[in-house]
Design a protein around this nucleic acid. Structure first.
Lengths: 202, 202
DNA sequence: GCGGCAAACGAACGCTCGTTAGTATCCGAG
DNA sequence: CTCGGATACTAACGAGCGTTCGTTTGCCGC
């Protein structure tokens, strides 16, 4: 009677992941129900449970995946770079690009922390803290080396992180500027990386 | 049998508003149910409807209130100030303070746009656009006057706005720094407002 | 004192949602 | 050819939620 035929060549697990990313990004985790995800995949609700153990677990996988990639990417980017200010620059550049490329997942990661159980939230927060520490440390070194003058390293770092994560909310691929230009302009908007403007009036 | 006694001197409408701000901020709009709000107020669920027409309307009132105050406050702050760069400075300073003082409401305003019906969302977006335009315009003037060198005015403005709104997510009253210090440090982290550091290496 | 109104109560409705269970179908290994 | 494991389907449960409704209570002006 009904076609319980698995579509050939279809990776359902991946399709579920992608649909969840899209919908969580568009509507938020709480506002998205599993029937919407099932529809997007082209499957019945119950079938989702062949691939996941719970809705919250699905959210967690998304967040852990993107945060892990973010930490590893930034760490790799800084590897072998000694100059502190250059480290700050690399961090910002990589972060902005990452937030542009994986904007939906990053946005979910920044937004849905509250939707996780305490234990899972703790795991994500730990990744986030490791990521943020990379900038705080680089900035601290740069300040000690006299490369930048900041009133407070931690607060300044928050400003830099804000610039990066905010990009995930407004950047659109194919927009007026490409990611290269956006990354350059945003990085320069962060005071420690601003080129000294010789001709600046006062 | 039951005490249907209105507590004397109690402004229930205000109590509902305050409880909603707290809970929406802590848990998000979707994750908060009216029974929690009623509990916080000390009232039964049904009684809430003596003061509001719907849950979404309550959210809308919160968002409209804070966004209106933000636009008006920033506009007043810039009134009579002619120097473009000074306008940028005033905007940032006021915004950061506002985001610190009314962090819960502002956070809700930045976060729960998705939870509004299209018509209500449009009203809030319009307020937000007016607020953002203040910075974009000031920055444009400053660039044209040669006071700052920016690769792209709009993107640079987004960086400034990011710094302000992000403050609502991490600033805590009574923390290591008071709001004055935070405002000064954050504003200086925004490149157009960074003091030229004469002794900066390279 | 009495009538009316504001404000609160308790109970219920109707719907949505995450999750589970039992069953059917297909494919590949033996 | 047949058996078993993936994978999908249908159906349902049970809890939670926003909202409505009829009733009750107490205060205030007449």
């Amino acid at each position: 009677m009904k076609k319980a035929v698995p579509r050939p060549q279809r990776d359902t697990a991946r399709a579920i992941y992608d649909a969840a990313v899209d919908l969580f990004h568009e509507q938020g985790y709480r506002a998205t129900n599993l029937r919407q995800i099932a529809d997007a995949v082209g499957v019945q609700v119950g079938s989702l449970y062949n691939y996941m153990s719970s809705k919250e677990r699905l959210l967690f996988e998304i967040m852990r995946g993107v945060m892990t990639d973010l930490v590893q990417g930034a760490t790799a980017e800084l590897d072998g770079v000694d100059d502190p200010l250059e480290r700050v620059h690399r961090f910002m550049d990589h972060s902005i690009r990452f937030h542009g490329h994986r904007q939906k997942e990053v946005f979910i990661g920044n937004t849905e922390l509250r939707s996780l159980s305490p234990a899972r939230r703790r795991a994500i927060v730990e990744l986030r803290d490791r990521y943020q520490a990379l900038l705080v440390d680089a900035l601290t070194d740069a300040a000690e080396a006299g490369q930048v003058a900041v009133a407070d390293v931690r607060v300044t770092a928050y400003a830099g992180l804000a610039i990066c994560s905010h990009a995930a909310t407004w950047y659109r691929e194919g927009g007026r500027l490409d990611l290269d230009e956006v990354a350059r302009c945003l990085a320069q908007s962060f005071a420690p990386l601003a080129r000294p403007v010789a001709d600046r009036v006062s």
